[in-house]
Design a binder for these strands. Structure first.
Lengths: 204, 204
DNA sequence: AATTTTGTTAACCAAATGGTTAAACCGTAC
DNA sequence: GTACGGTTTAACCATTTGGTTAACAAAATT
């Protein structure tokens, strides 16, 4: 058996599929384009993944598994909330630079088919608020941060970090900046967003 | 001429198209489905709008024209920044309840085709930061708010208000809440978000 | 009333698309 | 070397899809 080549083909398909699905979405993606990008015959896609739907699901799970650890960094780490906010905010931009299409892809496809995330909720490592909730309650009681629900704080952290990338075309148009200036804005946010959040919740 | 029916048909097509395009996106939308929803023959779509692309552009402009005034409320109104933040945050939820698919539609389609917004930038009423920039600079100098660039503040306001709706499936999964609890979270944000922002920027 | 213009439909068309199949290929074991 | 297994391809297929056409209906124009 040419085992080496086997796995290679399957991997090449997944890479090409990630590329195409993330930029075009499920509906906009074409099996032929994926095959071309992978440098193989279209029939191979079906040989390894059966159908477009199953190939898409393989891609989605793979991509989602990149995002989950990022979120767990803020939910399940042991550092203080202030530290978490600083670290997450700082790291997230580098992460996005490596995977620029990821957040929009996840959001777009989950809105197209919201039931899809249910399949993933069971899997180990799926982000979960339980521990974070306790921590927020503790720090609120201790008085180191102002009263806020863990849910709202988590939403705010995600919003301030993720939204600017998802809405890049809008922001560029409204702010009337070019790609370079936009990148500078994002670079500035590495520290500004954390300050913005901490300013808001820290007790003085 | 059956004028009444004319305009009615054209209007019915646009309504049906808004419905289908907003929920399915350009790639996922089907001309036949739009025709069915409008209760007319598929050929009429082409009679009135020539092609799928042109019908889509008509829809996009129409939808975008709903969003623009919302943003101008925060950019070009004469009230103080604090008032603007409170008003915008409070009003935006009601707006979204009326147009639940709007933010995701705009973001999704602009990411699919970022050049598309250029066509719209010229049109009158397109949101513009100029006035808001002056106001922020003035209030910073006056000392009523902490130093922050107008761009970053604007991004933060948009992010905190829009993101929770765009990422609804994600938030529901992570927070492990049902639709009812999610709606309650959003309802709470009507005031919480404004407080969060003002807490962060207000000088004490 | 006759004619022209506009609105509407059913039937049709060509291209694209996801998917299938049968044969060829090729490394390995016998 | 040849038979066997998984791998790969070219050709093919059925369906979907955006778009067109020709004929018809209803107003508007004369």
């Amino acid at each position: 058996m040419k085992k080496g080549k086997d796995e290679n083909t399957e991997e090449q398909i997944l890479e090409a599929a990630k590329n195409v699905f993330q930029t075009k979405g499920m509906d906009g993606a074409r099996m032929q384009e994926i095959a071309d990008k992978a440098g193989i015959n279209k029939a191979m896609l079906h040989y390894y993944y059966r159908s477009k739907q199953l190939l898409f699901e393989a891609v989605f799970k793979n991509v989602f598994s990149l995002l989950a650890p990022q979120l767990n960094a803020i939910l399940n780490d042991d550092s203080s909330i202030e530290e978490k906010v600083k670290n997450f905010t700082f790291n997230y931009i580098s992460f996005i630079n490596k995977h620029p299409y990821l957040p929009n892809f996840i959001i777009q496809e989950l809105n197209r088919n919201p039931e899809f995330i249910l399949q993933m909720k069971d899997s180990k490592g799926f982000p979960n608020l339980a521990k974070f909730k306790e921590q927020v309650a503790r720090e609120v009681e201790k008085g180191s941060i102002k009263p806020i629900s863990a849910e709202q704080l988590f939403i705010n952290i995600l919003a301030l970090n993720i939204f600017p990338f998802v809405a890049k075309p809008l922001i560029m148009a409204f702010s009337n900046v070019d790609s370079k200036a936009y990148n500078q804005l994002m670079e500035d946010r590495k520290t500004e967003v954390a300050d913005f959040i901490i300013n808001s919740i820290k007790n003085t």
